[in-house]
Computed example of a mutant assay.
Amino acid sequence: MLVDVRERAEAARVEILGPVVTVETFTDEEEAVRRADDVPFGLAASVWAENARRSHDIAVRLDFGTDWGNSHLVLADEVPWGDLKGSGYGRDLSLYALDDYSRTKHVMHHPSHPLPP
């Protein structure tokens, strides 16, 4: 656990894929959301607050692929697990994962101009 991490410190801006948490202080929710979103990555975020509604409302505003309110790493197979920004590519779990193996294409043909046999 890294405590009293300053704004824009490297530890707060990179994805440390390990058991590391940074603890930062802020003056209000607007600053907290701005600082959280001011990173080049967006895999996941957790918001903890005494009030469950408050943690939910803040989590919804964050620009991360998965956000939790008063919890962390709770996953369900029916919802996508994925990332935003520079954290990777695509979605795992759920039907959204099939999009990585699919390509949609729209072809429209005007009925007054028949196709040749």
Rank of each mutant, 00 (worst) to 15 (best):
residue 108 M to I: 13
residue 114 P to N: 11
residue 84 L to W: 08
residue 116 P to W: 10
residue 1 M to W: 02
residue 58 I to R: 03
residue 22 T to W: 00
residue 35 R to V: 07
residue 57 D to V: 10
residue 105 K to N: 06
residue 101 Y to W: 14
residue 103 R to T: 14
residue 115 L to V: 08
residue 34 R to P: 00
residue 75 L to W: 08
residue 99 D to T: 14
residue 24 E to N: 04
residue 46 S to R: 02
residue 98 L to F: 15
residue 88 G to E: 07
residue 63 D to G: 00
residue 103 R to H: 14
residue 94 S to D: 13
residue 55 S to V: 06
residue 24 E to W: 00
residue 60 V to C: 09
residue 3 V to D: 07
residue 43 L to D: 02
residue 40 P to D: 12
residue 51 N to T: 05
residue 59 A to R: 03
residue 79 V to C: 04
residue 25 T to K: 05
residue 85 K to Q: 02
residue 28 D to F: 08
residue 95 L to Q: 12
residue 47 V to A: 08
residue 100 D to S: 15
residue 74 V to N: 01
residue 19 P to G: 10
residue 47 V to E: 06
residue 105 K to M: 13
residue 81 W to D: 02
residue 60 V to D: 05
residue 29 E to M: 07
residue 75 L to G: 02
residue 31 E to Q: 15
residue 51 N to K: 11
residue 15 E to I: 07
residue 23 V to L: 12
residue 39 V to D: 01
residue 47 V to D: 06
residue 18 G to C: 13
residue 58 I to M: 11
residue 14 V to H: 09
residue 104 T to I: 12
residue 82 G to S: 03
residue 112 S to C: 03
residue 68 W to N: 04
residue 19 P to W: 04
residue 111 P to H: 12
residue 106 H to V: 14
residue 99 D to A: 15
residue 18 G to D: 14
residue 102 S to Q: 15
residue 115 L to P: 00
residue 76 A to N: 04
residue 102 S to A: 15
residue 108 M to H: 11
residue 6 R to D: 07
residue 8 R to S: 06
residue 73 L to E: 04
residue 103 R to I: 12
residue 34 R to E: 13
residue 71 S to T: 09
residue 38 D to Y: 01
residue 21 V to K: 03
residue 44 A to W: 01
residue 35 R to M: 06
residue 35 R to K: 07
residue 100 D to K: 12
residue 2 L to Q: 08
residue 14 V to S: 07
residue 8 R to T: 03
residue 54 R to F: 02
residue 86 G to I: 00
residue 48 W to N: 05
residue 31 E to A: 11
residue 28 D to W: 09
residue 71 S to C: 11
residue 31 E to T: 09
residue 54 R to S: 12
residue 1 M to H: 07
residue 70 N to E: 03
residue 102 S to M: 15
residue 99 D to K: 15
residue 28 D to T: 07
residue 45 A to T: 10
residue 98 L to A: 15
residue 13 R to M: 11
residue 63 D to Y: 06
residue 12 A to E: 06
residue 73 L to T: 04
residue 12 A to L: 07
residue 100 D to G: 15
residue 20 V to Q: 10
residue 41 F to S: 05
residue 90 G to P: 06
residue 10 E to I: 11
residue 113 H to D: 08
residue 53 R to V: 10
residue 78 E to A: 12
residue 108 M to T: 15
residue 17 L to R: 05
residue 98 L to N: 14
residue 13 R to C: 12
residue 95 L to F: 13
residue 1 M to E: 04
residue 6 R to C: 02
residue 86 G to S: 08
residue 107 V to D: 01
residue 46 S to C: 13
residue 23 V to F: 06
residue 50 E to T: 11
residue 55 S to M: 05
residue 94 S to Q: 13
residue 16 I to R: 08
residue 80 P to Q: 00
residue 22 T to N: 13
residue 72 H to C: 05
residue 84 L to N: 00
residue 41 F to W: 01
residue 116 P to Y: 10
residue 8 R to H: 11
residue 55 S to K: 02
residue 46 S to I: 03
residue 4 D to I: 00
residue 32 A to S: 09
residue 62 L to S: 09
residue 22 T to Y: 01
